[in-house]
Design a protein around this nucleic acid. Sequence first.
DNA 1: CAGGATCCAATGAGATACTG
DNA 2: CAGTATCTCATTGGATCCTG
Lengths: 109, 109
Amino acid sequence: MAQYTFRTRSSDCPYELAIGLVSGRWKPRLLEVLKDETLRYGDLKERLKPVSDKVLSAALDDMTRNGLISRTAFAEIPPRVEYALTPQGESLLEALGPLRDWARTENGR
Amino acid sequence: MAQYTFRTRSSDCPYELAIGLVSGRWKPRLLEVLKDETLRYGDLKERLKPVSDKVLSAALDDMTRNGLISRTAFAEIPPRVEYALTPQGESLLEALGPLRDWARTENGR
DNA sequence: CAGGATCCAATGAGATACTG
DNA sequence: CAGTATCTCATTGGATCCTG
């Protein structure tokens, strides 16, 4: 994974780097729903319920460029595109586990 | 810890909740520098080098309201204010550990 | 010393409409 | 089906100046 881009780079801070990769309203959920499952654009859109096309495709694009998600387009009509987690995406999701647990505990969920 | 506020709340997602607490350019670092140490405003400003007053005080305020940081003001002249991690702040920092490690590994640092 | 007040630029998110 | 194009609005980060 070569380069991450940030508006204001001070990414000598690893926290910031990792957080930057998943901050955005839909990114953590994208990782989650893609766990163990390859999904098409329409599936993702349905699972993330009220997301707009623009925001979803931007998030997918971001995460694809950052190597967290793989994108496979089939040359068919109608078009079909499948998204899945890459190994990096999977390990990032795992690394997020403690954070999720913390939130659940502190928030009493 | 009662309530977190988000622009667009869909915080039925724990990831999003925890990430929201530490997204912001300086927040992860604030947690880090306050580990094991109580610091004054000026100390923090120095350690976070090129941060502006507005952004630093906003971050401190945020995190204080969210119960991650404690703020103690002394009624003296000149004013003195000390910041420290709360237990929640400490446990959040720990929960961020795997994320930091992930970033270091994936980024080869 | 520890900030609040103000102003600005850049980014993020959403709604809607349109297309190969 | 899987997006892109446009537009709008809210939030973020930063610079600068000011103050109890």
